[in-house]
């Protein structure tokens, strides 16, 4: 009835899809982490301006669906800016901006959770604020960030499947294309689901390993 053997014929397309899914996830999340670190520090900054900008960013992104963000950035933004982005760039931007807001909250929470005595101990030894953040606060905060970061990475990787609506040739896009042309929805969508599962489960294992390595 179901012929999973035929999936082999579509592996090249699925592999292309997997490539774009991974590309957008990796580049988008790296950029998202940078955004998150910057705006996360903004959320704990004493500088009012920086704090307000960071807060607006976080609230706008958290308050709108990622699907709407993707469509807005791909279809609406070019009309405003008169600058056309290709769909892959747009996809990376969506994942970066979206994950950045959630990561900012993760960073804020982790840095906030480090005991105030750590900053005082560093400062009392003559380290400046920047040095204390770098050598004392960040390493401890980073360890606490790993479980929620892993969560966010997995959510963002799954969110890339929504980018098929802005024509990013990622895994879900390829799956839909194949299934609608060959009427093999069960085989193809099951395979696509398995691809996502393998990516995310591998990531889970990797994060667990890193967390264990950082034990003290």
């Amino acid at each position: 009835m179901f012929d999973f053997g035929q999936v082999i014929d579509f592996l090249p397309q699925l592999r292309t899809g997997l490539y774009y899914t991974l590309l957008i996830s990796v580049v988008g999340l790296l950029a998202g982490f940078v955004l998150g670190a910057i705006f996360g520090l903004g959320r704990i900054s004493k500088n009012k301006f920086f704090f307000v900008i960071a807060s607006i960013y976080v609230e706008v992104v958290r308050g709108t669906p990622v699907l709407v963000q993707a469509i807005w950035i791909f279809f609406a933004l070019p009309i405003i800016t008169q600058y056309n982005m290709d769909s892959i760039t747009a996809g990376i931007v969506v994942i970066a901006i979206n994950s950045g807001a959630y990561i900012a909250e993760i960073v804020r929470g982790a840095v906030d959770s480090i005991d105030k005595g750590q900053m005082e101990a560093g400062r009392s030894l003559g380290l400046n604020k920047h040095q204390t953040m770098r050598y004392i606060i960040w390493p401890q905060a980073f360890k606490r960030m790993i479980p929620p970061l892993g969560n966010q990475f997995i959510i963002s990787i799954k969110d890339t499947s929504l980018l098929s609506v802005i024509l990013v040739p990622e895994l879900m896009f390829q799956g839909r294309y194949i299934a609608s042309n060959h009427f093999n929805a069960v085989e193809i969508y099951t395979t696509v689901a398995l691809f996502y599962l393998v990516i995310n489960f591998s990531l889970s294992l990797l994060l667990r390993y890193i967390e264990r390595r950082l034990n003290y």
Binding site: Q118, E120, G126, Q131, Y135, I136
Partner: peptide, 27 residues
């Protein structure tokens, strides 16, 4: 001016010797 705190405030992610070495190294 050295300071010693009620709650010690050692750096938990660093070994004892690293705690002692950090400020002389970086400052």
């Amino acid at each position: 001016v050295g300071m010693v705190f009620q709650q010690f405030n050692l750096f938990p992610h660093k070994t004892v010797i690293e705690n002692v070495m950090l400020a002389p190294r970086k400052v």
